[in-house]
Structure formats: structure tokens, C-alpha cells
């Protein structure tokens, strides 16, 4: 395996990991697979596109670039704004749809509902932005050599750095703050959490906000390093689930590691098996790990 595969795989792996955080946390807490999670990434990417162009219009003039990156500070502001708005979108989807169904329905009803939500959210974007790819910038991405045989665009390196920082921040929040402890406790045992004075509804809301914000970042980063399409999040969905399951449901470090493994496996598959087998190879890795350790790499217990 050459170095280029590693750096390319890590970049897409970091985005998969960011998206998988929301999947693993909502699955761990609410015990259902949210198939609309990929759409949060797509919406995050498009919200940032709109915000960045609004900033350009308001301030009169296109965004410059920072150094040799393809984007400027407009997109960074738009990223922050998009994380907030997508977090609210995730929260809204829960209160309009999932929360009502949780009261009566089974897990399977929720999963099917999330399929419906996914289709609706994606179609709305296609309606508004067409199916044509969009770009944050038309600048040419500069590459730098980071080791013999390893080149990366500056965009990739920044995306990788910010994504890892966001994941590490999420992990520290979960392990070192009262809110994080409450989230882990509720995920493990909701009844006991209630008895310990934790408002489970608050924890559920926080989980949606966090998952939505991280998915938005993944979407923006995918837009920066590849392009924006209404199907981008949906295509990310299976790798997100693979990463979450591989890492162990409920585990943020697991989602991070799972994302990296899936990302690198996908990148490695291209020269070996051809691009059409990209997704398949990730699933072979997933199957092998699950056969050896069914709870995933960081899964502490059976669910």
C-alpha cells in the first residue's frame, strides 16, 4: 500500500468518522438506525454554500482565498453557521417525526420513517439546486509533498486537521464533562439515568444537535475536497453505518477509528480491485471485524 492511499483514505475517513458520530450516538441512545443521517451532511454542505454566497453578496465581492487553500474565511464562517443550522434541522426532524413515533412505534417504524425523511430531504435539495454538481470554489487545489510518494492538497490537510480536532473535542466532551457523562449514562441505561436525575429528553436533544453539527462539517468538507451533489450524503450513508458498527455502537473513538479504517480500505480498493468495488471492500473489512469481535472495535458490551 503506498502512502498516497493512506493520505487520501485518511481524508475521506475523517469525514466518514465525523458523520458516523451522529449515527453511533443516536443509535446508542434511541436504538434505531437513522437513514436520514446522510442528508444532514448534504444539507450542511448546501447550507454552507448558501451562507458563503450570502456573505459574498452582503459584503460585496467574492471570497478571497486563505494562502494556497481554495477557500477563504467566508466559507469558514459559513461552516460554523451551517453546523448550527444543521444541528437545528436534526432537532426539528426529531420533534416533528421521530419523537412522535417513539411514543408509540417500534424501532422498525422509526427506521422506515427515517427512509422517508431521507427521500424528502434529498428531493427538496434537488428541487432547489438541481442534480448538477456545485462547488464552493473554482480555484485550483495546490498540493504539497508531505513524504516521499505522498502528496496532499492543502485543503485535504486542513480538512483532516479540523475533522480530527472536532472528533477529539467530541470525545473529550463525552468523557470529561457532566453533560458527556449524562449522555453516556443515558445511552447505557435510560431508566437508571432518570432515577439519577438526568432529564432524558434533554440528552436526546443534545445528541441530535451534536450529531447534526458533526454531519454538517462532514458535508462541508466533502464539498471542499470533492463537490456538492444532492446525493452526496446518501452515498455516504453506508460507509457511515459501516464505520459506526465497526467501531462499536455508541463509541465516538470507535466511529473515528472505524471511519479511518473504512476510508483507507476504500482508497486501497481502487488500485487493487477497481473503483467499482470501492464500497464492497469496506464491507469485507466490516464483516471480518464483526466475525472476530461482534461488538465492534470499541464496543464494550452486547446490545
Amino acid at each position: 500500500m503506498n502512502g498516497q492511499i493512506v493520505i487520501d483514505g485518511m481524508t475521506s475517513g475523517a469525514m466518514i468518522g465525523l458523520g458516523a458520530i451522529g449515527v453511533t450516538l443516536t443509535y446508542g441512545l434511541l436504538r434505531f438506525a437513522n437513514f436520514a443521517h446522510g442528508e444532514f451532511a448534504t444539507w450542511g454542505a448546501y447550507i454552507a454554500l448558501v451562507l458563503a454566497s450570502l456573505l459574498g453578496t452582503l459584503l460585496g465581492g467574492a471570497d478571497g482565498t486563505i494562502g494556497d487553500l481554495t477557500f477563504g474565511w467566508h466559507l469558514l464562517v459559513a461552516l460554523a453557521g451551517s453546523m448550527v443550522l444543521t444541528a437545528l434541522l436534526a432537532l426539528a426532524l426529531d420533534s416533528v417525526l421521530f419523537r412522535r413515533l417513539r411514543r408509540h412505534g417500534s424501532g422498525m417504524v422509526l427506521v422506515i420513517a427515517s427512509f422517508g425523511a431521507s427521500l424528502a430531504l434529498r428531493s427538496l435539495l434537488e428541487f432547489g439546486f438541481t442534480g448538477q454538481p456545485q462547488y464552493y470554489s473554482r480555484e485550483i487545489a495546490m498540493t504539497v509533498a508531505i513524504a516521499p510518494g505522498m502528496r496532499a492538497t492543502l485543503d485535504q490537510l486542513v480538512v483532516l486537521g479540523v475533522a480530527v480536532a472536532l472528533m477529539a473535542g467530541t470525545h473529550l466532551m463525552l468523557t470529561h464533562t457532566a453533560l458527556g457523562r449524562a449522555m453516556r449514562a443515558t445511552s447505557e441505561n435510560p431508566d437508571l439515568a432518570r432515577l439519577a436525575g438526568i432529564d432524558v429528553a434533554d440528552v436526546v436533544r443534545t445528541t441530535w444537535l451534536l450529531g447534526g453539527a458533526m454531519a454538517a462539517a462532514a458535508g462541508v468538507f466533502l464539498g471542499v475536497t470533492v463537490q456538492l451533489r444532492p446525493t452526496m450524503g446518501f452515498e455516504l450513508l453506508l460507509p457511515l453505518f459501516a464505520a459506526a458498527i465497526l467501531g462499536g455502537i455508541g463509541s465516538v473513538p470507535g466511529a473515528m477509528a472505524g471511519g479511518m479504517i473504512i476510508g483507507i480500505a476504500e482508497a486501497a480498493a481502487v488500485p487493487i480491485a477497481g473503483a467499482q468495488y470501492r464500497a464492497a471492500v469496506a464491507f469485507v473489512v466490516l464483516l471480518v471485524v464483526l466475525l472476530i469481535k461482534p461488538t465492534g472495535l470499541f464496543g464494550a458490551r452486547e446490545r
Binding site: R181, R184, I198, R301
Partner: peptide, 17 residues
């Protein structure tokens, strides 16, 4: 008890209110 959490974290969650 919260089996996946440490003894210290179990108590920290309890006194958080």
C-alpha cells in the same frame, strides 16, 4: 449501576443534581 462507567463516574453522575 452504569456498568460501562467507572465507580467514580457513577457517583459523579449521582451528585450532579
Amino acid at each position: 449501576v452504569f456498568a460501562g462507567l467507572t465507580v467514580a463516574d457513577n457517583l459523579a453522575i449521582a451528585v450532579n443534581i
